[in-house]
């Protein structure tokens, strides 16, 4: 069974997923960070594939992407590093990346490389749904890679149902329409949106992301979804000296 499905099936408490950029801060820090996150209690991971033009990202993740590219990170290098993934990490791992680098690597090849190294899912923010369905879904299913779609407060119910139908891992709820790195601002409107989704009784579990940075926002998100995703706040930690030692504290702080 796919590790993502297993995790949600056996879930007892709110799940915490952490995003970080592959090859940042150092080319070879990817797996050390992954391992440390699992030890510290993260439930699953999203490893970002750096891209030169990350449209959906704010300055912190843009900076990590640029540094990683300058460090020499590429998809090929990443898959080399990930050969050791399953001897060091047991929790589910997704890759998050923009479409162009995947297209150059070859989507079919990409999916089979994911399977080979034990990656469980993908998030590709700029791959449209019908392209996925028409051209690529078969490679994902063939290799048991779960493709995760995003939903924003502006996504229509009709489209949410369609996304639910196409998904088989979880659905990623954006706390607001924004680039990454803005603080979560829980207004009545946000709560209405979270409740609306919750009441739709989707077949897929949901995770809330964008703007989750501390225990308060994590707990709030957990009221409405199966858990939450932290990105920018963690990438900021990686900018500090001695960040490895601070990872356990950081995760504990989030989970409370």
């Amino acid at each position: 069974m796919n590790r993502i499905n297993q995790l949600f099936e056996q879930k007892k408490q709110s799940l915490l997923s952490i995003y970080f950029t592959a090859g940042y801060p150092d080319l070879n820090s990817t797996l050390d960070i992954a391992e440390a996150l699992e030890k510290a209690g993260a439930d699953f991971l999203e490893i970002g594939i750096p891209y030169s033009d990350p449209l959906a990202d704010g300055p912190v993740i843009q900076h990590s992407s640029l540094t990683a590219i300058n460090n020499g990170m590429t998809i090929k290098v990443l898959f080399e590093q990930l050969k050791e993934l399953r001897s060091r990490v047991t929790i589910p791992v997704l890759l998050m990346g923009y479409f162009n680098p995947l297209l150059q690597y070859g989507v079919e090849h990409f999916c089979s490389s994911c399977k080979e190294v034990g990656v469980d899912g993908m998030i590709i923010p700029d791959l449209p749904m019908y392209e996925y369905e028409d051209l690529y879904e078969e490679y994902f299913s063939l290799n048991e890679i779960r493709n995760v779609f995003l939903i924003t407060p502006q996504t229509s119910d009709e489209r949410i149902h369609k996304i639910d139908e196409l998904s088989n891992g979880f659905i990623y709820l954006l706390s607001s329409s924004s680039t990454t790195g803005k603080d979560l601002n829980v207004s009545d409107q946000t709560e209405n949106y979270f409740s609306r989704i919750k009441n739709m009784q989707l077949k897929n579990p949901t995770m809330i992301g964008f703007g989750i940075s501390d225990h308060t926002s994590f707990a709030k998100a957990s009221e409405y979804a199966d858990g939450a995703i932290v990105g920018t706040a963690f990438v900021k930690l990686l900018e500090k000296d001695g960040f490895m030692e601070q990872i356990p504290e950081f995760i504990k702080g989030l989970k409370g």
Binding site: A56, E131, T152, R159, S177, S178
Partner: peptide
């Protein structure tokens, strides 16, 4: 062509 955009721009 096409529209390779994140969900946030879809509406």
């Amino acid at each position: 062509g096409g529209a390779y955009i994140p969900e946030m721009l879809y509406p």
